[in-house]
Amino acid sequence: MDWHQLWEITSAPDNVPIVALILLVPFYTWYGIRQALANDRLIAQLEADPQLAKTHHRKTMPWKAGWSKEIPVWPYLLRIEFLAAIVVTVILMVWSITLNAPLEELANPNLTMNPAKAPWYFLGLQEMLVYFDPWMAGVVMPSLIIVGLIVIPYIDANPLGAGYYTWKQRRFAISTFCFGFLFLWLLMVVIGTFIRGPGWMWFWPGQTWDPNNQVFEVNRDLPDLFRITNIWGKTIFGAIVMGIYFAVSGGVVHKLFTWSDWNKKVFAKMSFLQYITMQGFLTIMMLLPIKILIRHLFRIKYIWVTPWFNL
């Protein structure tokens, strides 16, 4: 166990935000889920008792008859904003006094840093480079993430859960977003920061980052396993496999989506465009964990090999 190595990574000034994230994200996830469960209990209670549903103020926050629904912004909101600004300023001051921003040697194109890492917030993309070619990991996937985020409001046809935390009413939406954000984005950032050492090789926490480390792994392509050598044979084979993948994963997404009775009704109301867009983004998103799995389990690099691109 190389504690020194671990400390060196954790205490690197530019890694402090990730250490903060590792603490903040679980906290806020718990904080949100806790309120969602509280609201779910209230929803169950109101569904069981229609009379109560008519009179209840429908929030978990305390409420008494005679209280006004609204309060003046000054002073009740502005004083909080002012306090928040002071607290953030104090945190920044303390952080800036105690820790210097990193400054390495003068830039030198002849001396490659090993590992050469992107800024921490892009390490998820850099980690994706292990599983996809740069055109996919560096260009197509980031574009799809941005467009995928933008279309969320237009494909989420579930009218429930607007303006309050809930799990029960939005199970599918919340679990897919949390999977994407927590596992496919943040976990990849954490792996890129703490696990990937020189040569972008995998070092477990506490293992020494040895630049001379050798990995004896031979990756192969899926067509090789079937002894397909002709490039056109590989192209056609890969296209068929991808077709099967989208058919199967589309089916799985559909099953998961229409799991609950409520979502069956939501599906009935969705337009074709909404549904096909949702399917497209979710099946492409699932390519990442699947490629991670087949890489680590079967050492498979490409599924689809063509003269123009490899996937």
Binding site: E104, T112, A116, L125, Q126, D133, P134, V139
Partner: peptide, 17 residues
Amino acid sequence: DQLGFWAVTVGTNMARA
């Protein structure tokens, strides 16, 4: 510095692809 130079080199190399 080295940190920024190589981070931006890695980042913009993606644009080649």
